[in-house]
């Protein structure tokens, strides 16, 4: 399955969530997105955003002060955000 990597380092919340939202808009159902962030707030915000918008967090881990969240894009029941 196609995997896209999103660099959200140094961005403070909610910017990582906004980047995820805008990237997911261009991905198809089942595609994988890996987000790399440095703001620990993303560990709570990105999974919440996924839950309310119908996507699935597969893994979330931290490595050398970075947080890596991998998610699978849901089935498109999501309104495109502008």
């Amino acid at each position: 399955m196609k995997k896209t990597v999103l660099n959200a380092r140094r961005l403070l919340c909610p910017l990582p969530v906004i980047r995820v939202q805008n990237t997911v808009k261009n991905l198809g159902t089942g595609e994988i997105l890996e987000v790399v962030c440095t703001d620990p707030g993303a560990l709570s915000d990105i999974p919440t955003w996924c839950r309310i918008n119908g996507h699935r967090v597969i893994t979330s881990r931290s490595e050398h002060d970075e947080y890596i969240i991998t998610l699978e894009v849901g089935d498109g029941a999501v309104q495109p955000a502008r």
């Binding site: 909610p14 910017l15 906004i18 707030g41 955003w49 309310i52 309104q79």
Partner: peptide, 20 residues
Amino acid sequence: KRNSALWVAEQLGIQLHIID
């Protein structure tokens, strides 16, 4: 560290669009 707007959306069970 939660984002309040996301938290509210989840409580309401609604989608949330965050616009820069």
